[in-house]
Design a binder for these strands. Structure first.
Lengths: 215, 215
DNA sequence: CGTGAGGCGTACCGTACGGTACGGTTCGAT
DNA sequence: ATCGAACCGTACCGTACGGTACGCCTCACG
């Protein structure tokens, strides 16, 4: 099981990154628009070059997803001092980052592509997206949760459970509906409610796991 | 925007349903395995018949998803008498139905297919799955929530918000991880924890929205 | 200036698959 | 018994696309 491999920015030359950008654009424009010919034309390069650089279509797809997923870098959150206030602020920051990421067209495209890929026993892309999406958040959130527990701000038996609850409270049914192309859920529609949703999620999480409830 | 059309069981003849079963089997076995030739061979019918009955490949796909999605009928929940106990039991029932549905191979396949479809500006399948999945649950859960609110068992400003919170608490990151083919999340793995997850979700929901907390 | 590597553009090949055509068979209705 | 509709199986066509080959250009390097 080849897990997601770290991708330095030096992994691809600028020219190659231009190609990957073209590939991603085509993906976003139309999920199945990533044909080798189309990428070559869009990036003004020859198909032969594509095959030389990426091996085959799957290699190009993988490189594109990998490269793009890796640059979904959410800003780090200060956790030096752990007051209730700081914790709530951190939680809101996480929720905000998670939501804004998830509703982005690039993220939707990447997830759709990976899911399509996973439907064909090829789960490379699935792992890559998982690793750079939910798992990345988990890795960053968990230590904060545990620090808060040690500081007696939170109480939970299992940090994994706590993390997953947080994820559920934040994401709810938004992601699946966007992936399925729910027309009632436009991006601007969701964007407008981000702040209130973020606050609500943090509130609810603190209600469930906070030691002394909220402020 | 052709929304999901109600599908009676008389919509398709038994022979046609056999064809649709074959199509679904192929989909489950391998997401992209639904070729007209393969369906014809599997169902022991001619391609000409397929085209006569379903128009084209997309029609066959749509019929398959529609027919299958419509038979995901979750058992109704008794809501005649609304005690706290009965409410909790109803919530747990909903959570259980939702979870068991979501982790089923058929559901995963349908969602993957619809998402792939939605990636190509064809959002028919997306709407069908939405309508028979999240929306079906919502339609059934909302009146119960509102009845419980009227009975002063729950308190929430907005039944839509309450429903979505419930959804998030139940589903968490399970669906997206399954769709992405997360190997760490086998079906049996999830199945084993359903009962405790269901109880936890109901507890948390009642903590957040219950008027007098839990029993 | 010569040369060779890298890369562009295009033409080309093979295959898989959507869609059509057609001969042969079953079967119910008259 | 006859007829025709429905349907099976197979062969066939056209196209799209993955992958390869090749001619030509550019440019760094000697």
């Amino acid at each position: 099981m080849a897990l997601a491999i770290k991708v330095n920015e030096e992994t691809f030359t600028p020219r190659q990154q231009a190609v990957l950008t073209a590939a991603l654009d085509l993906l976003v424009e139309n999920g199945d628009g990533l044909t080798m010919t189309a990428v070559a034309r869009r990036a003004s390069c020859s198909k032969e070059t594509l095959y030389k650089w990426f091996g085959d279509r799957d290699g190009l797809l993988t490189a594109t997803v990998q490269w793009q997923a890796a640059k979904v870098r959410m800003p780090f959150v200060d956790r030096s001092h752990l007051s209730v206030k700081a914790l709530r602020s951190s939680l809101e920051q996480f929720a905000r980052d998670l939501l804004t990421t998830i509703i982005g067209e690039v993220s939707i495209t990447l997830n759709r592509t990976a899911i399509t890929h996973a439907a064909q026993e090829k789960d490379d892309l699935g792992n890559i997206v998982l690793e750079n999406g939910p798992m990345a958040i988990r890795r960053r959130l968990k230590p904060i949760l545990e620090a808060a527990r040690d500081a007696r701000l939170l109480r939970f038996p299992n940090s994994e459970e706590a993390y997953r609850t947080f994820y559920g409270l934040v994401v709810r049914d938004v992601q699946i509906r966007l992936l399925l192309g729910d027309k009632a859920l436009t991006q601007s529609n969701v964007e407008a409610n981000i702040e209130s949703d973020v606050k609500a999620a943090a509130d609810q999480f603190l209600t469930l796991y906070g030691v002394k409830a909220n402020s």
